[in-house]
């Protein structure tokens, strides 16, 4: 029997997350290289569009279903995933390193006697073995990890691994989870009203102390709005109470990897860089030409945010409305 790699899929409100499709893509590529069989599993109450998974190279899709699984249950999902993986004799499990995947994977791994590497930014087959790379010390260094146990678990950082189209035939199966472990459950989700979260946004406009006071943040919000971007913040302005902690980017805030990160009046302290350095394109606006943010910026504007932000907003509006 050939070896098995399982992609563990995350759904919210029945919808499959993009980061899970990144996991599917990676699993399918590895499977091809190392001659593994593949399976995608989705703990859920109900799922829409599970066939979408087949677009990225995994055709065998199994929902582990129970009506209590409409929300995440740490204990319930753990038992369901671990028992299924054990029964199928899975050798590799891949999760996305989201709030859910981060919580779930380290609970599943010990039940399978598996070693685990979390928050990987690279996972490659080398000489028939999987080698992961993960950032350590807030991205100041990288660690190469090989998991030596026979069952291996990896969580992949969202927005780093590409989607790889590879259409195959979907074969969706359902397994009822009859006696779920509901000792730890989510009773409610409180959404931050109508706001795009920096951890999920494709474009982020962040503001720092250079904005001078909280009342000036509308400049950042307006640019974000024309770009369809989320608003981010440096710790300095979160500590000052100008912005909520949920917007903080950096070592003690969120790690983000958008396609575009616009830093306005942010100096670029190492702890801030730790959270955003792997963004695809970085634009920095700062009046100090020696500000460290310029060392990692792809495009830099040396100037005053109060002059530049309104102009930038108007120009982008012109381009996007055409």
């Amino acid at each position: 029997m050939s070896k098995l790699i399982i992609a563990v899929i995350e759904q919210r409100d029945g919808k499959i997350k993009k980061s899970s499709l990144e996991v599917v893509s990676k699993a399918a590529v590895i499977a091809q290289q190392l001659s593994y069989e593949t399976l995608a599993i989705i703990p859920a109450a109900t799922v829409e569009e599970s066939e979408k998974i087949a677009q990225y190279g995994i055709g065998r899709i199994v929902t582990l279903s129970n009506s209590a699984f409409s929300n995440y249950s740490p204990s319930g999902y753990t038992k369901a995933v671990a028992e299924f993986a054990k029964e199928k004799g899975a050798e590799v499990l891949l999760f996305s390193n989201t709030a859910m995947g981060k919580d779930l994977a380290p609970r599943v791994a010990p039940l399978l006697g598996a070693g685990i590497a979390s928050d990987c930014t690279s996972l490659e087959a080398q000489n028939g073995e999987l080698v992961a790379v993960r950032p350590v010390f807030a991205g100041k260094a990288f660690q190469k990890v090989k998991v030596n146990s026979s069952v291996k678990v990896f969580t992949l950082r969202p927005n780093v691994f590409p989607l790889v189209e590879n259409q195959t035939t979907a074969n969706v199966e359902n397994v009822n989870i009859d006696s779920p472990d509901l000792t730890t459950t989510v009773s409610e989700i409180k959404r931050a009203e109508g706001k795009l979260d920096v951890a999920e946004a494709d474009i982020i406009v962040s503001g720092g102390r250079g904005l001078k006071e909280s009342g000036n943040f509308h400049l950042v919000e307006e640019l974000a709005s024309v770009l369809g971007a989320a608003v981010g913040a440096s710790r300095a302005v979160v500590d000052a109470g100008w912005r909520p902690h949920g917007e903080q980017v950096g070592q003690t805030g969120k790690t983000v990897t958008p396609s575009l990160y616009v830093a306005c009046g942010i100096s670029g302290a190492i702890q801030h860089l730790a959270g955003m350095a792997s963004s695809k394109y970085i634009v920095a606006i700062n009046k100090d030409k020696d500000a460290p943010i310029f060392t990692i910026a792809d495009y830099g504007i040396v100037g005053d945010v109060f002059e530049i932000l309104p102009v930038l907003k108007d120009e982008i509006k012109k381009v996007t409305s055409n």
Binding site: A99, M100, D197
Partner: peptide, 17 residues
């Protein structure tokens, strides 16, 4: 115990013993 944990775009209210 009832705790709120941070997730993408909000919080989950989690109950446990």
């Amino acid at each position: 115990v009832t705790a709120e944990r941070e997730i993408e775009g909000g919080r989950e209210v989690v109950k446990s013993g």
